[in-house]
Design a protein around this nucleic acid. Structure first.
Length: 653
RNA sequence: GCGCCCGUAGCUCAAUUGGAUAGAGCGUCGGCCUCCGAAGCCGAAGGUUACAAGUUCGAUUCUUGUCGGGCGCACCA
């Protein structure tokens, strides 16, 4: 509702500027004064007009203010600072509109087209670690925001089941442990943990002799070839690990619509088709001499047009031996995502989780009927670490080179920095750390890192002991359930509060914190707010009637004065949630939304903590109704926000 | 060498994308449980936004340069 208000306001400001000065305004920024006394909404239009009109911003503001003050829903307009026009809103009307919008759970208008988001995409050869969880949490949250803002989104998890990493573990099973497929299948317990340890030892095995190292290429070749025992073992390993990954992510409420397998990209000849297209269009060039002789290369034009002397090196897409690089396969996959490859996968049902959510998988065998339409999206987001920026740029350039300029434009790389370990945490995990090391890099190859399931377990254990401290009577099932919700909230918020370009130094103690700027702090606000309503009901009050009564009150009057100002600050912040989500979509960054949720919780905590604003002990029925209305509004918005952040709300905490 | 990212309070991070007196959390110090739950609240101390120029009404934000740190630039994935 606040976005509609802003849009309307912007149009009014443009009209007033036209009437007063005959000037045309482009974008009209709607901001917020640093202090509530200065006004509710700040306009910077006078500064923009000052440039073209060659007059002082302040004079322009003085001229605009009276006309703006006359607008409906605006109480008055004041000129402040160097030339701001600050508007004071009709608070009662605003509050009523906000409550109406929240009660209606009014969804954002549907945006035409569809979006594919690819995230997680962990090599299926070991357990997921904290870095993978950052990827999945970021991707999943972005998907939730997109959906909240009206996009139709399909989530894909790319399974690189024919790559060297899977091959390495297969080498481990076959040549280090001498296991048959039956023996591998018989391995009990957490298979992803087993492979984690095994994978960490393969490096040493390769280093021991050239013969050992030669096994890697041998196995990789057999896997790519398919239809043999080695490939079947690889298939088993990858599939079983994927099941582990899905289970781990499910704990964090992260789901997928499709598991896209690299094996099927190969078997269904996606690349062959893409190669034809790229050759036809002249996007790829066969080098006849020089260091790249015999290779098909893609010319990477400089970022800026006409920047001829800044042309990057050509990127090899097809090697001189005729095999395609990873980047080439990725171009084919990207073309398919965007509906520009006249090939499709076959699909079959993969599994249904405990919530009833169905995941499909690609297959090169016969497909099952009933699959929804995958791919063919108008835009695609690839959640991949920032180290992959260059290959991602190549993929984009490949799409563009085919003449699909819009599609390339709509290919987004949602890059994020890595997660490293604090020395303390690395030591606690038993790794030797140098005295002057500020950080320790995780390394799947060395088995160095915090496994996702271990971390979640530790968080749940911590939450359980915290619950034990305050609520010893709580039965085991409920305690476990709430501890899990707290753990998930803590972990997701911890990973979301950092901007994408920030390296996260993971420290166990910090991640286990439940106080301060954390998920549990936000959850606590909602739990306690709900508790107030529970007490009201226990007191014989009817929340629905309180709400009814509140809407019949003179809200404008109640939103004045000391308590009124404080409530108003909270309501305005709540209303800005819609704006925060939209900003999150536009900036492709979810951290500000997480911070916003925290800010709302903080404003609420500050308000309801004060005994003089008590609801149960309110001085009058009207005041009780008014305050209940505020709490109700907070709960509704917070439930929506936490839903978008994927943070559950415990019953008690 | 070229490209990208980062540098803001003791520590970890924000800053509405060029706006008003740069804000939070942790930590430190001091208060608040006869008061809807203290996983909370209130207050204090803490800043030359790495440095230097420039652009303009206005710069943490844009430009250039310098310094420091990270990553990328494979016929690996």
């Amino acid at each position: 509702m606040i976005l509609a208000l802003q849009e309307w306001l912007a149009a009014q400001v443009r009209a007033v500027a036209r009437d007063s000065f005959g000037a045309e305004l482009g974008h009209v920024a709607v901001q917020y004064p640093p202090k509530i006394e200065l006004g509710d909404i700040a306009l910077t239009a006078p500064f923009d007009l000052a440039k073209t009109l060659r007059r002082k911003p302040r004079d322009i503001a003085e001229a605009l203010a009276p006309a703006l003050a006359k607008l409906p829903g605006i109480r008055r307009a004041a000129v402040a600072g160097g030339g701001y026009v600050n508007l004071f809103l009709d608070r009662g009307r605003f509050a009523r509109d906000l409550a109406g919008a929240l009660a209606a759970k009014s969804a954002a208008a549907a945006v035409p087209g569809s979006v594919v988001v690819e995230h997680t995409s962990i090599n299926p050869n070991k357990a997921a670690h904290i870095g993978h969880v950052r990827n999945a949490t970021l991707g999943d949250t972005f998907v939730r925001v997109l959906r909240a803002r009206g996009r139709t989104v399909g989530v894909q998890n790319y399974i690189d089941d024919t790559g060297v990493q899977v091959a390495d573990v297969v080498v481990g099973f076959l040549y280090m442990e001498g296991k048959s497929q039956a023996e591998v299948e018989a391995i009990p317990g957490k298979f992803d943990y087993y492979c984690w340890e095994l994978y960490a030892r393969v490096g040493d095995f390769y280093a021991a002799s050239p013969e050992n190292k030669a096994r890697q290429a041998e196995v990789l070749h057999a896997i790519e070839e398919g239809g043999n025992d080695v490939a079947r073992l690889a298939e088993h390993v990858a599939e079983r690990i994927v099941v582990c990954h899905l289970a781990t992510m499910r704990r964090l409420d992260i789901r997928y619509e499709l598991l896209a397998h690299e094996r099927d990209v190969l078997r269904l000849h996606f690349w062959d088709r893409a190669f034809e297209l790229l050759k036809q269009s002249g996007a790829l060039r066969l080098e006849t001499d020089g260091k790249n002789a015999g290779c098909w290369v893609l010319t990477m034009a400089g970022e800026a047009e006409g920047d001829a002397d800044r042309i990057d090196e050509d990127k090899i897409i097809v090697r001189s031996n005729g095999t395609v690089t990873y980047t080439g396969k990725d171009i084919a996959y990207q073309l398919w995502k965007l509906g520009r490859l006249d090939r499709d996968f076959n699909y079959r049902r993969h599994s249904t989780d405990d919530s009833g959510h169905l995941v499909w998988t690609t297959t090169s065998g016969p497909g099952e009927p009933g699959a929804p339409a995958f791919g063919h999206a108008t835009s695609a987001f690839n959640v991949i670490d920032v180290g992959q920026s260059y290959p991602q740029r190549v993929v984009k350039a490949g799409v563009a080179a085919l003449g699909y300029v819009a599609e390339a434009e709509n290919s987004h790389h949602l890059g994020y920095e890595k997660v490293v370990l604090s020395p303390a945490t690395a030591r606690a995990l038993g790794y030797s750390v140098g005295e002057d090391d500020a950080i320790v890099k995780v390394s799947g190859r060395k088995g160095l890192g915090v496994k996702a399931d271990d971390l979640i377990d530790a968080l749940i254990a911590k939450a359980e002991s915290e619950i034990e401290l305050r609520d010893a009577e709580r039965d085991a099932v409920a305690r476990r359930r709430d501890a899990t919700a707290i753990a998930v909230g803590a972990l997701r918020y911890f990973l979301l509060k950092f901007g994408r370009s920030k390296i996260i130094t993971f420290d166990m103690e910090e991640a286990l914190a439940f106080v301060g700027e954390t998920g549990p702090y936000i959850q606590n606000g909602v739990v306690r707010a709900r508790n107030i309503f529970a007490k009201l009901v226990a007191d014989g009050q009817d929340p629905a009637r309180l709400r009814e009564r509140a809407l019949g009150l003179d809200l404008a009057a109640l939103l004045e004065g000391e308590e009124g100002d404080e409530v108003w600050t909270l309501l305005l912040l709540i209303a800005r949630s819609e704006e925060a989500m939209e900003l999150s979509v536009r900036s492709e960054e979810v951290a500000p939304l997480a911070k916003h949720a925290f800010a709302v919780a903080q404003a609420f905590h500050s308000y309801y903590q004060k005994p003089r604003y008590s609801i149960l002990h309110a001085e009058s029925d009207d005041l009780r109704a008014f305050r209940a209305f505020v709490v109700d509004t907070f709960i509704r918005q917070m439930e929506a926000l936490l839903g978008v952040l994927g943070i559950p709300v415990p019953d008690r905490m």
